[in-house]
Amino acid sequence: MDNKIIPMSENAKCSCGASIIGVFPCAGASNVGQLSNAIAVELHKQGIGNMMCTVGIGGKINGLLKSAEGCDSIIVIDGCPLKCAQATMEEAGIPIGKHILLTDMDIKKNKDLDIDPAQVKEVLSKVTELL
């Protein structure tokens, strides 16, 4: 996995080019939550989508809500069946284009927060196939 740090200044994307796809991970406090975040980072780095702040949607932060509304489509990545990210988006009235649930990929939820780069790579491949 490439651990290159993306400068924040690169994170505001101009809408003049291709369609804007927002990626919202649950980023929860479990292995699958942290995995959702890692997958979102990789999708962002690969230019497949634009990682955005799910917690900002829950917090009803004006600029982040408007950014989500400005997306052409939305991908939500939840780690577990609690589907917190999906619920957050629904509560805010933001339509979800694609919902991905990582525990549907034969990954058991646990409290380990250290994610395995090899697993990130493997799950990223599966997620990319679903998009």
Partner: peptide, 21 residues
């Protein structure tokens, strides 16, 4: 980015983001 805006263009009126993207 200080406004939480992740897509441009955007319009802010008196500190409130009105539209993005």
């Amino acid at each position: 980015l200080a406004y939480g805006v992740l897509i441009t263009p955007a319009v802010v009126v008196d500190g409130e983001v009105k539209i993005v993207g």
